[in-house]
Design a protein around this nucleic acid. Sequence first.
DNA 1: GCGCAAACTTGCAACCTCTGCATTGTTGCG
DNA 2: CGCAACAATGCAGAGGTTGCAAGTTTGCGC
Lengths: 205, 205
Amino acid sequence: MPDTGLRERKKQRTREAIVDAALRLFEERGFDQTTIADIAEAADIAPRTFFGYFPSKEDVVFADFPTHFEGLAARLRDRPGDETAIEAMRAWIAGLLEEMDYTDERERCRKRMIGESEALAAHDRNLMGRVEDLLAESIARDLDDRPGDVRPRMIASAVTGALAALDKTGIKQSESPPTHAEALAMVDEALTFLQGGIEALRRAG
Amino acid sequence: MPDTGLRERKKQRTREAIVDAALRLFEERGFDQTTIADIAEAADIAPRTFFGYFPSKEDVVFADFPTHFEGLAARLRDRPGDETAIEAMRAWIAGLLEEMDYTDERERCRKRMIGESEALAAHDRNLMGRVEDLLAESIARDLDDRPGDVRPRMIASAVTGALAALDKTGIKQSESPPTHAEALAMVDEALTFLQGGIEALRRAG
DNA sequence: GCGCAAACTTGCAACCTCTGCATTGTTGCG
DNA sequence: CGCAACAATGCAGAGGTTGCAAGTTTGCGC
């Protein structure tokens, strides 16, 4: 349990206030039509203060990405010697799916926004890109490839591509969000694909 | 042979002047340390005019992306019924490799810049993302999947991942750029991977 | 050649994101 | 209590980007 002092708790509350205010405004009038000043006012802070909490407007929408990312990094770093990077990644995704509430309106709203704002979609791609880099590095180590080789990058890219697709399912108001089982099935479909591809490379190489 | 009038030629020359000036400045002092005003001055135009040619500073570095992208889109649209999206993509890449001079200093310089500026790397990822979307759509059609399915997205992502890796080889001054044969070998490695993956899905599905 | 409409260039004002810096509270702790 | 660390703020400013309106240039038909 990190720092439980008043200071820390207060910061945490402010952070949440910012996220709440921002998401509400984004939903009301759209991401692009909302300024930092608007958010600051709604969250009852000074505009300048916003940047002490988030490096950019986009980052509010991905408020817990850093935590998740760090989690994946740790997981990849500390995995036992017999666990492959892909297995670690699978476990990580499963963990995320586990703790996710598929009907959480907040979450669905976030995804809808990402689909509606080019700026957010771009930021999303960039974050995925960082995941991909992280993963590619671990995969390269597994495979004894050099970091610049095609193979690890391609595999990592396929994984994040699947992840992105998973992330985009059930957003439309007409569709219902996937069940936990459906989500896992998508993950496994991706794994089947990867295994097949890797096998083929092994046979050929 | 579009419009051969004076007007069009002049615009073309201005456009090239902007690219030349910008790339030179980016190389000299770095992308982030160069302002639109700097570029405008060096290209002998008004700052405001810059935006009549490129929507953002980043886009200058990817000046011919729109053309290439359009080429791929056309290729995918007009391909014969028996050609898969992946084959079309392969042909497109082969075409690009064909017309590329691997020792072209301009080209290597561009790639180096992308690696050195976070803003450019981000823009690069976004453009790749657009390619991926385009490709995913065609693949989905090939496979009779719905656009939101995992499979096409994952495959498209693997392809662009390989493309990105290919794009990043031989950038460091210590390394020499890949030969045409090496580049093609990388492409084929990617195709082997994809074939294997798709096969595995077919067996499982 | 003339003259007009379309297209291009430019200057200007404005808005917005984001950063550095200096100031003024607040909090934690000995 | 009083100090040192930390947080919030205000201010000023740089830089990207856009809309608008005024001035130029070009293409073209007469």
